[in-house]
Amino acid sequence: MKSLTILEVGNLAGVVVMIIGLIILGALLISLVVAFITKVIYEWKGDRKFSKKQFIQTMVICILICGLISGYICGGL
């Protein structure tokens, strides 16, 4: 007997979308916190400015790292 995955059971598409949405929102929240902490550390001396472009790049890099980690956890090895 084959084991069924969550997508083969049917009518669970809402659950799958909700789980993916929570993962995305969690990654956005974590990346926002990390980017803000990075900004505070970068501007600690007062003579440097953390631009909006650097903030967005920091968030994107953190989101990509969160995606890799969640893919490793959810996808297994």
Rank of each mutant, 00 (worst) to 15 (best):
K45C: 07
I65M: 11
S31G: 07
S31D: 06
F36L: 10
R48C: 05
M1Q: 10
T38G: 09
I30Q: 08
L68N: 04
K2F: 04
L64Y: 06
G10P: 00
S70R: 00
T5L: 05
L68S: 10
V60W: 05
F55I: 03
L29N: 06
I23V: 14
L68A: 11
I37S: 03
L68E: 02
S31P: 03
I61P: 01
I41N: 04
G71L: 12
I20Q: 13
I69V: 15
D47T: 13
W44Q: 08
A13L: 14
G14T: 04
S51Q: 05
L7Y: 13
N11P: 02
G21W: 01
D47E: 10
T38L: 12
T5G: 15
F36P: 03
V60D: 07
L4Q: 05
C66A: 15
L64P: 00
L12I: 06
I65Q: 00
L77G: 12
D47P: 01
I63C: 13
G14Q: 00
S70L: 01
N11E: 10
Q57R: 08
R48L: 08
I61E: 06
G10Y: 00
I19R: 04
R48G: 00
A27H: 05
C62V: 11
I20L: 14
I73T: 06
V16T: 12
Q57E: 08
R48T: 06
Y72D: 06
F36C: 03
Y42F: 13
L4R: 12
W44M: 12
K2C: 09
V9K: 10
T38P: 01
Y72Q: 13
I6C: 07
Q57Y: 05
G71H: 13
